[in-house]
Amino acid sequence: MGLLTNLRDSVSRVTDRLFTDSEPKRIGIYGPPNAGKTTLANRIARDWTGDAVGPESHIPHETRRARRKEGVEIERNGRKVTIDIVDTPGVTTKVDYKEFLDHEMEKDDAVRRSREATEGVAEAMHWLREDVDGVIYVLDSTTDPFTQVNTMLIGIIESQDLPVLILANKTDLPESNVQRVANAFPQHETIPLSALEGENMDEVYDKIAEYFG
């Protein structure tokens, strides 16, 4: 009996490792510009690997190339879940370089930023159709969730049958309204958090393990 259990345990440990090592799930962090996707990606990466993913900024379209952090091992209740996290550029249907001029940018820089942003969004949309196993959808809970981009993206994610977690970010701000986010997407679970302050990350990791493990 003891031998058999041991054997079974070691076999399942090996297969577990085989499975997780050979193909960690690729989890795309999607959402509109400025929602806090990179702040979240950096927090996850720092908590579990020690280093960051990329720069955060209050200027929209800071992330203009998807950035991947591979093999992030998240431990929950004695179980390890290994995922690749992909921080993507904020999705939009329009980019006008003139908006960056308000952020004290020269025209050349603004034009370059907008060109990079459009390339990045195109790439992120392509990946969403081809290359992602699950989605963390980040929303700024101080803003209206009923936007066309959110409606379309959630529809696209649902049509691919991808598991999706909706995160209502920036709960540290007084204008945060988590219920409004939950009401906008009642078919999905909404988890409140502050990626900046690190509030409620335990629940976020529990859910990541549950959804993508």
Partner: peptide, 25 residues
């Protein structure tokens, strides 16, 4: 949904300064 996703992708590739800044949908 798949076509909407491609519409966003193609729109992005066609945006160019002072000419086309994208779509409202």
């Amino acid at each position: 949904p798949d076509e909407e996703s491609k519409l966003i992708e193609v729109t992005m590739t066609e945006i160019s300064p002072d000419d086309f800044s994208g779509i409202e949908i």
